[in-house]
Nucleic acid binder design. Sequence first.
RNA 1: GGUAUCGUGGCCGAGUGGUCAGGCAGAGGUCUGCAAAACCUCGUACAGCGGUUCGACUCCGCUCGAUACCUCCA
Length: 495
Amino acid sequence: MESSLFLYNTLSRRKEKFEPLNPPFTGMYVCGPTVYGDPHLGHARPAITFDLVFRYLQKLGYKVRYVRNITDVGHLEHDLDEGEDKIAVKARLEQLEPMEVAQYYADRYFIFMEALNVKRPSIEPRASGHMIEQIEFVKKILASGFAYEVNGSVYFDIEKYNSKFNYGKLSGRVLEDLLANTRALEGQDEKRNPADFALWKKAQPGHIMRWPSPWSDGFPGWHLECSAMGTRYLGENFDIHGGGMDLLFPHHESELAQNQAALGHESVKYWMHNNMVTINGQKMGKSLGNFITLDEFFSGSHASLAQAYSPMTIRFFILQAHYRSTLDFSNEALQAAEKGLKRLFAAFEILEKMVARDAGAGMQDHGSRITAIRDACYEAMNDDFNSPVVIANLFEMVRIINSVNDKKESISADDLMAMKQTFRDFVFDILGLKNELSGDNSEYVKGLMELVLKIRQSSREKKDWGTSDQIRDALQKLEITVKDGKDGSSWEMGK
RNA sequence: GGUAUCGUGGCCGAGUGGUCAGGCAGAGGUCUGCAAAACCUCGUACAGCGGUUCGACUCCGCUCGAUACCUCCA
């Protein structure tokens, strides 16, 4: 459990040593999707980022309770200004029950996250299932005097809060600036201050999603569900709260304030935020026509995609950048990732079959190098989850593997075992990559391939290059690549 | 306009006050019947302008540029 993991805390704007409140237990809350549309690239990044955190904390021996919410209530469609519920709008269009829509897209989300090999969190609570907790939370804030009720709606009193605490401490905003920048919008007359946000909103007559509350039939404010569910499942104090940088303000800022107001203290020790995704240098947005869903990525069915990209290519590509950097998607960059990933797994397959070959005197000592690489990988992960440096080190190992395979270098049994262990630990367990290359590896296929390659080998020995090349080309068409090496030929699935 | 993050070689992308990231692409070589794969070698990149320093891509300032967010509600 003694680890030297450091992570960047948005609250302090520096890397801090990770020390959970109640080791070995660790609580992590991450903002999940609003389920009113098909999952897209913007969903993949936080999911994979915090999957990496989840996996690594577990690798270090922590008992992690990972909570990721599903938002299925009370959110407005962006370009509408009538205050209609996002899900309600969609439901009317499709003639479906709002919950049916939420269920459908939640399922889609799970399917695509599984394809990306993102582990399911420990708990995936839905906002609609936690109305009581949310209402109780509002009551607490009202009781502490930091909220007020007007016409059935309840608002958070930011000015009052700010007189005692600091609204803006997380995002670095100053209340005066927020007020100075205020635009005059309609329907704000209820609020004492334009910066105040809703904790509970009275539903308009045509509003489909509504729940009874002491104040009105209505729905909870957006920031509320995370405060309520985080507290419910992780307690009043927990370790990590994550999400995309776009949620920093106002969502997380307000969530922090809600907890302070309701509980008398803040709840989160470490705030983590992943950076955003851009496409060809532009932000991803529906209006820009570069809004690409995961489905389109996997099938290649989007005008700006030159080809389909497998889930692992996407995952590997995301992990090749540090989570706090912006990440730009382009065909060129994705193709580079695809090839790199293929090389990584090709080396892994060689490694799995490799046997130790002591060369006795003059043998190159890999032991220290392999240990150094393994240490460098842990060091990188301990330095705020630096997956790109882990990957760079793994490629160092790839070179050793290939050199040994080419009989240019030898390797001891101990080193071989250490290398296999490191590869498995980091590639599979921590980075969460899967080998998509191997395809059908059944004994049946292996037997057939052995036979085919034997026939080809005998024609090669007779210098019958016609037959030999015919076999190779035919196999290539089936996406089986034949590689001729010094001790015969090997094969692999994939282009 | 405000806040935040950032600007690295053909592309993507780490990192650091004074040796190296790494991947992809490209060039040359080794191997090979050919090809593929693999291995070896190669690029003197750090937005611009000043300043601090013996020395800055790395620290400070300014300029330019990029991305996200900016009270209803999400």
